[in-house]
Write a protein that binds this DNA or RNA. Sequence first.
DNA 1: AACCTTCATGTGATTTTATAACATGACGAG
DNA 2: CTCGTCATGTTATAAAATCACATGAAGGTT
Lengths: 172, 172
Amino acid sequence: MTSKADGISAETASLIGFEKHDHDACVAEGLAAVEARCAAEGLRLTPVRRKVLEFLLQEHRALGAYAILDLLRDEGFGSQPPVAYRALDFLAEHGFVHKIERLNAFVACSHPGETHSPAFMICRLCDAVAEAQSMPAKGALGTAARAAGFHIEKTVVEAEGVCPSCADKANA
Amino acid sequence: MTSKADGISAETASLIGFEKHDHDACVAEGLAAVEARCAAEGLRLTPVRRKVLEFLLQEHRALGAYAILDLLRDEGFGSQPPVAYRALDFLAEHGFVHKIERLNAFVACSHPGETHSPAFMICRLCDAVAEAQSMPAKGALGTAARAAGFHIEKTVVEAEGVCPSCADKANA
DNA sequence: AACCTTCATGTGATTTTATAACATGACGAG
DNA sequence: CTCGTCATGTTATAAAATCACATGAAGGTT
């Protein structure tokens, strides 16, 4: 499993929501879901964009734009920053990937297809990232926003802490 | 009001939580609260650190590290990035200022003294920032974290949208 | 087919944000 | 006084992101 020799690590690739899973299937599903939405909405999933998405699905963790750029270069695509940033902008704009502000890095969306306001759990030891749902606008923040007359368009929710496998290692 | 001629704008300085207020008093209070906590905990509020805090209280909006650095230079302090970043690190570590990840910028804390997990409302039109409270670990995110075995240490909650005064302008 | 429009890609240069590495200076404890 | 600790200052560099402009592919119109 996860033996594609793309220079992509197999170690971290076995995590999703910090749990093991059939990663090859998960990559294929992610890609298929995005392809379906692009077809449905007339979006152009070009080779660069598709490749960037594949990298992120394959790695299954947050990658910086420059790490992605290196991978693109290895595959023969353009090697200047805008190439990566533009692909990432497209993917993020349509919710296929998310930017992790805390890390200045990007992850593939775990729930492509559904509209959602994602929340992330970021392990400060191994940088693994798990995506969860959140409805911050429904809680205290939403109340404060209504009181202040602030109109929320989008939320960033990122929790930093320690993932189960790093906690185990620390206790060992 | 807010007429200190420090090269600091008076326009945006009249906002807190997007509302007008007695800004001079608010700066003085913020400073006093931090001084009290430093005295109580044996922290060293040195001249650079104090000045950086003053700038942020005075501006009452998010400032980038390099903007702060420019202000420091004008006051005769060192003018290299580490000077600003170190002061900001100290202030942030103790909760006197917060980093707005979305903007790569910093704001003075609106509730110094109390421990809290802040949430921010960021106007995408004027960059004004208001601080609210949030308990993200109590909602859906907390549930997901417990289920995943993830231990949350700190959360970043930032809502992007439109503040009341920009909404008014847009409607005019 | 020839043309045009639109959008995507490629490239060079630059800007913005942040850190590393090392020297100097202030200050209290012994 | 002097040693250890922490803060500051400075040079240099790394990392992240954008600007500006040229080229190229895809689809529609005539």
